[in-house]
Amino acid sequence: MARRTPRPPRPPVKDGSPCPCGLPAAYGACCGRFHSGESVAPTAELLMRSRYSAFAVRDEGYLLRTWHPDHRPGDVDFDPAMHWTGLEIRDTAEGSMFHTRGTVTFVARYAVGGEPGQLHERSHFERRDGAWVYVNGTVVQ
């Protein structure tokens, strides 16, 4: 059996901490309730925000659970030097509680070794068995 690379420790985010996704609620009442399984994200945008937060807190289990099974990787390779610094939602199309598909265009900001960077992506989501999942994304130039 292949040996897995040890995962970097999770950044300290508590239920009362500001949510990494940028909404004005505390983590436990915002994305933390999705990460714990207490609730499922009712819209594609909230799933996108919760997945961003999952990258910020290094919640591999949540990311894999919310990835479309046809596109899901075997694991998530977190860069221990990467620190996620902010999320900006630029556009959404469909993705409400009444749709089966949706897209969310966003800019996710990060720093690696103190150097800033950003990911600008249009993500595609689909509702499967009543829950939103991430299908894939296209990098926006």
Rank of each mutant, 00 (worst) to 15 (best):
S53N: 06
G102W: 05
D70V: 09
G95R: 04
M48C: 14
L87R: 05
C30R: 05
M97W: 12
A81R: 08
T103K: 06
P12T: 15
F34C: 04
Y110Q: 09
P18C: 08
D15H: 12
F125L: 09
Y27G: 06
C19D: 01
R65T: 12
F98V: 03
S53C: 03
R33G: 14
H68M: 08
G16F: 13
D129C: 12
S123R: 10
V139H: 12
T138Q: 14
R49Y: 00
E38P: 12
D77M: 13
L23D: 05
N136C: 13
R33V: 14
W132Q: 00
V104A: 15
E88A: 10
R4A: 14
R109Y: 05
Y62H: 03
L63C: 00
I89W: 03
G22N: 04
S123D: 05
H83P: 00
L119A: 13
P73E: 14
R4K: 12
V76N: 03
L63N: 08
P8V: 10
G117S: 08
F34I: 00
H99S: 11
S123F: 01
V133P: 02
W84R: 03
V40M: 12
H71V: 11
H83W: 13
H83Y: 12
V40L: 11
T85I: 07
T105R: 12
T105G: 11
H71E: 10
N136Y: 00
G130F: 08
P8F: 04
C30M: 03
T100L: 15
E94T: 05
N136K: 12
R58A: 07
M48L: 14
V133S: 08
A2S: 15
T66S: 07
V133D: 04
Q141L: 08
V133F: 10
P9Y: 09
M82F: 01
L119H: 15
S53R: 02
E115L: 07
P9R: 01
G22S: 06
R127N: 05
V107Q: 10
V139L: 12
G95A: 09
A54C: 01
W67F: 11
D15S: 15
V40A: 14
G114V: 00
R10V: 06
Y27W: 10
L47C: 07
G130I: 07
T100D: 13
G137V: 00
C31R: 08
F106P: 04
F78V: 05
P80A: 02
T85G: 05
D70T: 02
G86C: 00
T138S: 15
Q118T: 09
V107A: 11
P73R: 04
Y62N: 03
T66H: 04
R90P: 10
D129H: 14
L46P: 06
V140A: 14
R128Q: 12
